[in-house]
């Protein structure tokens, strides 16, 4: 088991290194000089040069890359070109919006998908199954940002139950949760549809496994067989998809934040791009990549916990 995890850890660490190099390169070759952008069109060339050296932009790329990586390791994400504020501090503020949003959406998706998938698989071909299958077909076809707009139209503009956007901050937790509700629902819907589909088909596969028949031969009822023997096996592919979907959840969150004017990481990255605040772009993207890789590792750990065959 330790061997398996150790190998995964090495491979993930390698992914991080390569990913950081790719991000650095993309930002490096991107057109647009942050210094000239900050000083505007009419800046003197020597003023620009001075700013460049102040920002460390005149150093050789390799040196800047190493400095960036070294800083990230120690929690120093650099200083924003535009705001002259530590990136770490800016990120910390935005994470307070993005992380609860993602977790809320994930929880909601799981809570919807589990019963739907189980009901569909155990009532295969019947009305309940057809209903779930139809709903998931629709669920994966709806762009979440459009669904978000429809939610705003109905619940914010027509019914006025929720506000149409913005975030009041966590000083009032109830209001904060309320303002995250519609975005979380919009994010959760396609995720729930995907999870329910995967759970349904993996349960259907498991139901025809030999060991399920063995369990029936012992005298377990259908329901007992499902709960004691089927569900655990069926959840493993769901786990895989949860891990894989996490990166889509992040991407979705970035777009949803636009719809609801939420001050999260997504808006931060968009602002930084338009302002050529490259250090913010680099660091936030790296952070997101790190989050995806960390979640993948957690998925691996969960596998090992769930499947004894991996524990050697």
């Amino acid at each position: 088991m330790m061997g398996y995890l150790a190998r995964r850890l090495v491979s993930l660490a390698l992914s991080l290194v390569v990913a950081s190099a790719v991000i650095f390169l993309v930002v490096e070759v991107a057109p647009g000089d942050p210094a000239s952008f900050m000083l505007g069109m009419n800046a003197q060339s020597d003023t620009v040069a001075a700013l460049r050296s102040e920002l460390g932009l005149d150093l050789p790329p390799v040196q800047r890359y190493l400095a960036w990586i070294g800083g990230m390791m120690t929690g120093d994400f650099g200083v924003s070109y535009t705001y002259r504020a530590p990136v770490a501090q800016m990120v910390a503020e935005r994470v307070q919006v993005s992380l609860p949003l993602a977790l809320l959406a994930l929880g909601l998706a799981v809570v919807i998908a589990l019963p739907a998938g189980i009901v569909a698989a155990t009532h295969r071909g019947k009305a309940a199954d057809l209903g779930v299958v139809g709903a998931t077909q629709l669920g994966v076809a709806i762009p979440n940002f459009w669904f978000a707009m429809l939610l705003v139209l109905l619940f914010a503009l027509k019914l006025r139950w929720f506000s149409a956007g913005g975030f009041p901050g966590w000083s009032d937790p109830v209001m904060a949760l309320k303002s995250l509700t519609l975005p979380a629902v919009a994010l959760a819907l396609p995720q729930a549809a995907i999870l329910a589909r995967v759970l349904r088909s993996s349960l259907i596969d498991i139901l025809s496994e030999d060991f399920m028949r063995t369990a029936r031969a012992k005298g377990l009822s259908r329901r007992q067989t499902l709960w004691r023997h089927g569900l655990r096996a069926a959840l493993i592919p769901v786990l895989t998809i949860l891990g894989l979907q996490f990166s889509f959840l992040l991407a979705g969150a970035i777009i949803i934040e636009q719809v609801f004017f939420l001050p999260g990481l997504g808006r931060l990255i968009f602002q930084a791009i338009t302002q050529r605040d490259l250090i913010v772009v680099e660091s936030v993207t790296m952070l997101l990549v790190f989050a995806v890789i960390a979640v993948n590792f957690l998925t691996d750990l969960a596998y090992v916990a769930a499947d004894p065959r991996l524990r050697r």
Binding site: A19, V26, S247, L250, I254, I269, T285
Partner: peptide
């Protein structure tokens, strides 16, 4: 796969 795909798409 380690990259959040749409994030990189947005970046690029």
């Amino acid at each position: 796969f380690a990259f959040p795909s749409l994030v990189i798409a947005i970046l690029v």
